[in-house]
Design a protein around this nucleic acid. Sequence first.
DNA 1: CTATATATGTACTGAACGGTACCGATATAG
DNA 2: CTATATCGGTACCGTTCAGTACATATATAG
Lengths: 199, 199
Amino acid sequence: MQKGRPREFCKEQVLDKALHVFWERGYEGTSLSDLTEAMGINRPSLYAAFGNKEELFRQALDRYAEKGPGAVYREALAEPTAKAVVERLLKSSADCLTDPANPPGCLAVQGALSCGDAAESIKQELCQRRARVEQELRLRFERAKAEGDLGRKSEPESLARYVMTVMQGMSVQAAGGASRADLHAVADMALRGLAAAES
Amino acid sequence: MQKGRPREFCKEQVLDKALHVFWERGYEGTSLSDLTEAMGINRPSLYAAFGNKEELFRQALDRYAEKGPGAVYREALAEPTAKAVVERLLKSSADCLTDPANPPGCLAVQGALSCGDAAESIKQELCQRRARVEQELRLRFERAKAEGDLGRKSEPESLARYVMTVMQGMSVQAAGGASRADLHAVADMALRGLAAAES
DNA sequence: CTATATATGTACTGAACGGTACCGATATAG
DNA sequence: CTATATCGGTACCGTTCAGTACATATATAG
């Protein structure tokens, strides 16, 4: 057992609260007072448990990527065909981005799309995460091409970038108030276009 | 002639400087010190000429919409066919969003995608502007449908939302460092999909 | 000229920011 | 029990924020 006085809150639980605030207001738009209020702990406890605002954001982002929408995206990549991957990806995105339990949109997009100097490294981190997802998608399409699942003329890199672009656009739409049905219509249209272009 | 001491700077010129800063750092990420430094004027001059930070942003946004990328978008709407409109829109977006003379991305997207309470009304304003553009695009497609330029089964509303989604996604891509060629590839893929789905 | 009106520059305001020193409380280790 | 280590709460730190008071400078109106 650990020495000292035990912590009186559940770290994961308050981290989820912090995630929710960052998701809603972005990194710069979130103040420490917003965080402590939502998390139900006071400032020194936050610093003791999570380091500082930036480290807290990174931990919230990790949680977002592991337990949140990131998990859904990993499931999509496991679909057996490229077409199924894209369909699952776009459909799940439409659901995720408009899940009433969460703020609308995607943390990796709206967490710090543009910002002042203080948040620059957070912005970079989010860019890298988005780029990593795009690359994993590209690798998945390259595999599909090698397996004959995608045509010989297909371009995995462009395809991955295109799908990411649609998803990121959907995230902006969601942040702007688009409904779940709206986003599903967008996903359907993108899928129809891809299917038609492929044939 | 006007009484009093004349202003020593060109209002439009320093407004362009402010626009550039807001474009790069977003509304919340931009401080008054950033603004005065870039504009080359001091604080009271800024307040005398533009009101306050929020009004300055709105004036910069108006300028963005009139003289900047907004003008390009209006030209696109004037193309004779729906297909030409979309093509021009996506191609111009690819160019605009990566114009080396400007910060990458779109002010209406990254100006305040998510934010704290203080910037809430700015966020709303940007949402409305994006929605207005989408509606104008929808109206253009409805006209095209009425003219027989678009098929009877086409859905102007979904089409407009889809094109906006791709453009907004391209804006996120640009903010993340995508090159002009990258975005043109995205535009081409979207156009191919639309053409194929239409036929 | 004087009177008036507007612009500029310095230096400031109160509030909010992120972050911390410090002390009392509460656990384990021996 | 005492010693030690961590937690929680108050009250604070220096800095930066958006916004402004005020004195000075420079124009026009008469």
